[in-house]
């Protein structure tokens, strides 16, 4: 799904731009659509939103950098979201993060060299009773131990390399 900026915009994002009729408050939904389509917000999408809505690019960038959801860089094939909420913190999320960083050789918000994983830390996934927890893409994994994390990450990497 990830495309380089400069290429034609994917249909979903383009359609939303076409449907825009000057309703107020559409910058964030448009950015969400761009990110949904490209996997991140490329410069070309910012230019398009600016010209269609008549909002200065600087203002759009202000919105992008304010919210944690928006990314200006492409994502890896799998996205790891490690929960560092309170419940996870008190049962060892710190250690879990350490294991992920060692195993993947990344720090939060980085993508591994092979482009397979992007590693992020989030405030709370809301499944506190499964702490410590993390999500890989849409799948949640709970009651993690260093052993299970290593196994999981290696499994994902093997599967990704096979494809």
């Amino acid at each position: 799904m990830i495309q380089e900026s400069g290429q034609p915009a994917p249909a979903a994002f383009e359609k939303m731009l076409w449907q825009y009729r000057g309703e107020p408050g559409m910058i964030i939904p448009l950015l969400q659509a761009a990110q949904e389509s490209y996997g991140y917000v490329p410069p070309a999408a910012i230019e398009r939103i600016a010209s269609v809505t008549g909002t200065p690019e600087a203002e759009i960038c202000g919105v992008i950098t304010f919210y944690k959801q928006f990314r200006l860089k492409p994502l890896g094939k799998h996205v790891i979201r490690l929960c560092k909420g309170t419940a996870c913190h008190v049962v060892g999320a710190e250690t879990v993060g350490q294991v992920i960083e060692d195993e993947l050789k990344v720090v939060p918000d980085e993508t591994t060299e092979d482009g397979i994983f992007t590693y992020m830390v989030v405030a709370c996934l809301g499944c506190c009773s499964l702490a410590p927890a993390m999500m890989i893409d849409e799948q949640t994994y709970g009651r993690l131990t260093p052993q299970t994390i290593r196994k999981l990450l290696r499994q994902y990497r093997r599967d990704a390399q096979k494809m």
């Binding site: 560092k84 909420g85 309170t86 419940a87 913190h89 405030a123 709370c124 809301g126 499944c127 506190c128």
Partner: peptide, 11 residues
């Protein structure tokens, strides 16, 4: 918006 880390009532 339930942003409190450690809370999941609203969800």
């Amino acid at each position: 918006d339930e942003g409190d880390p450690g809370a999941f009532m609203d969800r």
